[in-house]
Every structure is written in C-alpha cells, then in structure tokens.
C-alpha cells in the first residue's frame, strides 16, 4: 500500500515535468528561459543587467516565499493522490450532457456531414479553447470577488517572489475548484461536440497537448510567474495577456487589485472592464500588501488560515441575518 503510494507520487511528479500537457513541462521551461534571456539581452529597458544574476537570483529562487511554493507543490500533489479519485470527472459531465441533449431534443441530429474531419477537429479545438479560457477567467474573477473564495485564493497572492513553480501555489480547496472547472469545461465541450458530430470529434494537438495550450506554453507562459516583465506591446495586450500583465495582477499596489484575471485572452477582461495594459519598465512588488505580515510564508498558516477566515465570514453573515430578523 505504502509502496504503491510512493510509486504513484513519484510518477505524478515526473509527469508534471515530462508531459507536454503540463505547464512546467521541461521543454516549456527551457523555451521560457531562452525567451527570458533574449528579452533581457536585447529588448528589456534595463538590458544592461547581467543575465545570470537577473535570472538565477538566490533572493528569488530561494526566498521564504519560493520555498513555500516548493513545499506547497509537493504537499498538494500528495493530497491530490487521495482527492483526485473522488472528484467529478469530465466523462461523467459529458455523458450526462450527451444523454440530456438526447432527451431534450428527442433525437440526434448529426451536423457537419459535408465537413472534413479536420474542419470538425478545428471547430472542437477552438470551441474547447475559448470555453476553457473563459471559464478560467470567470472562476478567477469569482475567486477575487467572493469573500470566502478570496480567503482561499489569497494563498496564491501571498507569494512575494514569483517563479514558474508559483503556478502551483494554491490552497487544495482551490485545487478542487480548478478540477471541477476543468471537468465541467471538458465535459461540456465533449458532450456537445460528440452528440452533434459523432466519432469524428478530436483535438488538434502538438506533442499530445491541445495546439492552443502548446502555443500558449511555447510563447513563455512560465514567465507569467517570474520577475521578467515581458510585454507584448499595447496593441497585442488588448487581445492577449502578457507575462507583464499577469505580474500586474500580483501587484501590491491597490490600483492593480482585481485586474487582469485572464489567462490567454485579454478579451474577457476587456468585456468585464478589468484589463490593464503593462508599462515599459514597470517595477512591481508582489504580494497581498506592501507590509510583510507575520507568518505569511508559514505552511500551517497558509493551509489553515483560509478555513478560519471563511468560517468567520460565514459567521458574520449569520449574525447579520439574525440582527436583521430581530429588527423586523
């Protein structure tokens, strides 16, 4: 039992680094590094700095915050070995939707029979990408705007230094929400497309990953969580979220709070009025607030505090309700 647990754990960590469907696949990390080097050497406003010290700064990679990231990454992976099997899967959602569509419509109209298989695949891949990107945006927005959800999402924002591993800095409760989101998005895309297009539905992939995810990752997605303020320029940043824009999202400056929720597309932020374009030479401090608070990188605090906070939020709501009932 213990032995098989260790094996699955090691396999899981190995997959995180070697599966091109994962953000921190070694190939993407390497490409991000190359992009960062090019940016610092030739494009960045402070291109005079030494590449080595700028990229491999111990103060970044071995800060208390980064060390907490690593620990959270390892602990969450372990926790998810137990949590993942009981979570809702995309297949359950897809099957339910497929059956429901059948019941609602009463029959199964097969669409796109004159389309080539490639056309069906492109449609599915695009639909899945748009749906996924929007759901990621919207859940992220909720995580910031709903008080009890924010209590959990604060874990991610309490990072003082950003490294690609910060992507895993999340409370397990958030992890459950992310998994449910993915199950829902994948389930909807699969259920709808297989229902209407049958067995021809497939994903356009590169190295096994969706082509959009691949493109996002080979263009430096790992720099979102880094100190490299890679900008795309004003025109492009209205459409795509650059690493610099995501770093604004992590800023301690209150004018940057609740901005740039998007992952790939800036479109959603524009629609909901939360888009901020990056500025050349932006100098941003990361974290929840400027002042460093006691225990903010303490693991026990990181894992337990969200429960206490969300419980207090719940309690104060109950009290408010009781008061209003008493008044009436």
């Amino acid at each position: 039992m213990f032995e098989s647990l260790v094996i699955s754990y090691v396999q899981d960590l190995w997959i995180a680094l070697t599966d091109p469907r994962k953000r921190v696949f070694w190939g993407y990390l390497l490409i991000s590094l190359l992009i960062a080097i090019c940016w610092i050497k030739w494009v960045s406003p402070d291109r005079g700095v030494r590449v080595k010290t700028h990229l491999f700064n111990r103060k970044v990679w071995w800060s208390a915050s980064a060390r907490a990231d690593y620990a959270i990454f390892l602990l969450n992976r372990l926790a998810f070995l137990f949590i993942a099997p009981v979570l809702l899967t995309q297949l359950v959602v897809a099957q339910w939707l497929f059956e429901s569509l059948y019941q609602w419509i009463g029959h199964r109209p097969i669409l796109g029979e004159s389309w080539s298989d490639m056309q069906v695949m492109i449609c599915f891949t695009l639909f899945y990408f748009l749906l996924d990107d929007f759901f990621r945006f919207y859940l992220h927005k909720l995580l910031h705007e709903v008080p009890w959800l924010w209590a959990f999402h604060k874990v991610h924002h309490s990072a003082r230094t950003l490294t690609p591993i910060t992507v895993f800095r999340a409370h397990p409760v958030e992890g459950v929400l992310f998994s449910l989101r993915t199950a829902l998005v994948q389930g909807i895309a699969m259920g709808v497309f297989v229902f209407f297009f049958g067995g021809r539905v497939d994903l356009v992939t590169v190295l096994g990953a969706s082509i959009f995810a691949f493109m996002f990752n080979v263009t430096g997605s790992n720099l979102r969580h880094s100190h490299i303020a890679l900008r795309y320029g004003k025109a492009l940043e209205k459409w795509l979220i650059s690493p610099a824009q995501h770093q604004i999202h992590h800023s301690t400056n209150p004018i940057h709070f609740d901005k740039n929720y998007g992952v790939v597309l800036a479109l959603w932020d524009r629609l909901f009025g939360s888009l901020v374009i990056s500025q050349p030479g932006q100098d941003i401090e990361f974290g929840l607030r400027r002042e460093v608070t006691y225990r903010e990188q303490n693991l026990l605090y990181i894992y337990m505090q969200p429960f206490i906070e969300s419980f207090n939020i719940f309690l104060s709501k109950v009290r408010k309700r009781e008061k209003s009932i008493a008044k009436n």
Binding site: K22, N76, I83, Q90, A94, H156, V167, E174, G175, F178
Partner: peptide, 16 residues
C-alpha cells in the same frame, strides 16, 4: 467520449 476524455487528460491538479 471515452477516447476523447483520455486525450484531454485529467483536470485534477492544483494549477493556478
């Protein structure tokens, strides 16, 4: 649906 689900991979991960 099964084959496609496998291709899309499991969503159970804690990635922000």
């Amino acid at each position: 649906l099964g084959g496609l689900a496998e291709k899309l991979g499991s969503g159970a991960s804690v990635e922000n």
